[in-house]
Design a protein around this nucleic acid. Structure first.
Lengths: 231, 231
DNA sequence: GAAATAGTGTCTTTGAGACAATATCCT
DNA sequence: AGGATATTGTCTCAAAGACACTATTTC
């Protein structure tokens, strides 16, 4: 690398500076199809006392890798989940946060459809999805990461319809509202919800057939990238 | 450190993992007393081609130091500014963002009163405060950091009166509005501004004397810590 | 027809913005 | 008195929440 010979004003090269380890930890949020609550993905984690605990999936940053790369690698490897679009939340930098040494961790969040998570959860003993309200007592500062991820996600869902494109095909406003209620963890008024979301959707002429009651109109997402939060 | 002998499931110790350099860069925002615009603090920066450029103050993270520590150290040393309460914004992690090697930078923002900045700006050639609109063409990704810091700060000022306690003693609503207009970079309607901010202030019985016009009531900040954004 | 769901109308409240009237000081 | 600034009143508009009514399907 060209930088090897560079010396700064005090005569030091880049390698002379101390280097803490840098990790990523990710809260993967999802809504199981048989539950109406936001869940977070946990993986079995053997700590330095050789005890198994549930924790957020994480890894150390490898050479030449971006943080998003590391997130995707750790999730593919530790939980068999692919297709993530991680969003950075916060760097946890307490000096004593990891008793193996100085480790800073960049917390991430990623919201994915249940179909991406279900195979790993049902096939592997070391992967589980638990309601976010039940994900407490996790090691390191993972409780804080989960809380941060949930708050961040709920704020995004208050603004836009299904910002993570969890509903694949066309959907009714009831289906959209059920999803938002699961993310929020609380019921939403159906009339106000419709009036806020409908202008942001693209109507298909079609109706949802086969269910009891008046058939509901099917909508699609608007063109363009879904709302993203940070650069 | 106790962690030295710890080996993970693949037999590696913490030292076996690659370690990128970790830096902090800080946008120090302030409003000069003789200007009605938000300014950012820049320091002279000699790059690897031995050219002097203006850049945000930054440094590498030292051993046993938190990110906030590193921010305060870099500002005290490179700009003679103390008393900061830095807030984390984002980690910039592009692999090629620094041509000296792999360096990740945690961007921070800190809003301080002009009195903390003025001595260094007037005494040192290598420290300057420029309007945020003029702080473009900076090296690395410092343009993005400034934009992020400004957006973050403006959003905070839209909610609460003087969240960084830049006004020391009691102040009138006109003085508060002038500050918010400087941060926002646009005029604010005086009646709406009053109605939003007054409930969040503590009235003193006293009036501002000596100026022309009807004397304005003096207010103080509410008790308690000012609104903070992230953990 | 009864039940269930979709979609809409309307009333109230709240807050922002615009505009202006009134109040109280300085010179 | 006259100018300047502070403070408050009022009107309009928009959006949210609550409530209820109508519409259209399945059973």
């Amino acid at each position: 690398m060209a930088g090897r010979r560079y010396r700064d004003p005090s005569g030091r090269t880049l390698a002379d500076y101390p280097r803490p380890s840098l990790a990523v930890d990710t809260a993967v949020l999802t809504v199981p199809s048989d539950a109406a609550a936001l869940h977070v993905l946990l993986v079995a984690h053997r700590d330095r006392h050789r005890r198994d605990r549930w924790a957020l999936p994480g890894t150390f940053l490898h050479e030449g890798e971006t943080l998003a790369d590391a997130v995707r690698r750790s999730l593919a490897q530790k939980a068999g989940v692919v297709g993530l679009t991680p969003t950075q939340l916060h760097v946890f930098d307490a000096v004593d946060r990891d008793d193996r040494g100085r480790v800073l961790s960049v917390a991430h969040v990623s919201v994915v459809g249940w179909s991406r998570v279900a195979p790993a959860v049902s096939a592997r003993d070391d992967v589980a999805a638990v309601p976010v309200a039940a994900a407490v007592g996790l090691p390191y500062d993972h409780d804080q990461i989960v809380a941060l991820a949930v708050a961040h996600t709920r704020a995004r869902y208050a603004e836009h319809p299904d910002p993570d494109r969890l509903l694949a095909g066309p959907f009714t406003l009831l289906e959209l509202r059920r999803l938002h209620e699961a993310v929020l963890g609380a019921p939403l008024p159906k009339d106000t919800f419709r009036r806020r979301m409908q202008p942001q959707l693209r109507p298909t002429g079609r109706l949802r057939q086969g269910a009891v009651g008046k058939p509901a109109e099917l909508f699609r997402h608007r063109r363009g990238a879904p709302a993203v939060p940070r650069p």
